[in-house]
Design a protein around this nucleic acid. Structure first.
Lengths: 201, 201
DNA sequence: TGCGTATTTGAATTCCTCTTCAAATTGACG
DNA sequence: CGTCAATTTGAAGAGGAATTCAAATACGCA
């Protein structure tokens, strides 16, 4: 028998297990037994904590998104130079490789968001928050005279996040020429044009 | 009994039916019965033509991709002015709205491409062809002196396709502020900076 | 028109997943 | 140490979906 755990501890485990199961089988392909296996429990035990699997899946997606976003904010908070912030943020939005679990999870959401309103809302809110994050960096840089923006900061920020998203897909789909480093360079190419700064530090 | 059809006609029908079923249920959620229902047949009939459902799904994705790409090329072929070509191509890469079936289908692929090599290859090949398409427009414009490119044409082309992809996701996820017109404007903002042309025609 | 065959149906079977629940187990707490 | 409640198991059964296949059907072609 699997080690007994408190209600809240087990729920955290299950959310992690669901995250892994989604990555392996897709949001629409996950089964109760997949989650149970990932968690090292039986289906019955999963159901004891989450009588409705779809609720667990939403929680897993939500948790994954939050973790991804928090991590990016954390990396930002250590820095002050807008140039460095911009470069680091661009890198932190890309997967480390085709197997990067955070980005894989987010990518699973893309298709489902068109069918499922809840997933659509989740994904939209993540996008908007990431846009704000970039916007703050751009505005600060502009105020300090380091950046000379070629357009609205919101326009540039939206495009930066969009580029990250798209290259995340390319990388997880194993594009033979576009890996993390190449994607970063492509986005930086745009960022340079948009900020009038050569972004080398 | 459903109207009898020749082998090849029925296969075309089934590919269309599978396309619709995937949009409704996701690549990993489609069932034989969904496809059968969309085609107005029984499961047995579907199996008669495609003993393996996953093969049918791949064919459906493939056909949808090809159609999307052919359509873009067709719109291009009617034009000669590089500025007009660029603007029209940007618009033709975006969904007409959240329900646009072509983009919905492609979006379904995104997550699956990370798990399934076949889908990964399909999606990558579409991306590369779209990049070439943009590259040709950019190079022509540059040769004519209409565009003054701020970077490699391949870099700009990759970014343009990436932006289209990403805004396709935003639109199908029903972002409240970003619809087809807004997305086009965002991409054009980048295209203007990258080509040094104000792209009004 | 009628034959022959390709296509389709529908029912039977098998397989698999979800759900339920009584029993077993375990850890907390007195 | 023993009791009790919370957690987990495992088995049973209900519901579906895939698969198989014999029979029915309709179309092409002679």
């Amino acid at each position: 028998m699997a080690q007994r755990k408190s209600r809240s501890d087990r729920r955290i485990d299950l959310i992690e297990a669901a995250r892994r199961a989604i990555i392996r089988h897709g949001v629409d392909g996950v089964q109760l037994s997949h989650v149970a296996e990932e968690a090292g429990l039986t289906s019955g035990a999963v159901l004891y904590h989450y009588p409705d699997l779809s609720e667990l899946l939403v929680e897993a997606q939500h948790a994954g998104m939050e973790r991804f976003y928090e991590q990016r904010l954390r990396q930002l908070s250590a820095l002050t130079d807008p140039v460095e912030k911009l470069v680091v943020t661009i890198r932190s939005g890309l997967p480390t490789g085709p197997l990067d679990p955070d980005v894989r999870l987010l990518n699973e959401l893309g298709g489902a968001a068109g069918r499922n309103r809840v997933y659509g809302v989740l994904l939209t809110s993540l996008y908007d928050r990431q846009v704000s994050m970039y916007q703050a960096i751009l505005d600060t840089g502009a105020a300090l005279g380091v950046f000379r923006l070629s357009a609205d900061s919101v326009t540039i920020a939206r495009n930066l996040v969009a580029l990250e998203d798209a290259y995340g897909y390319r990388i997880t789909a194993r594009h033979p020429l576009i890996g993390p480093a190449e994607a970063a360079e492509l986005i930086l190419s745009y960022a340079r044009a948009a900020t009038g700064n050569d972004l080398s530090y």
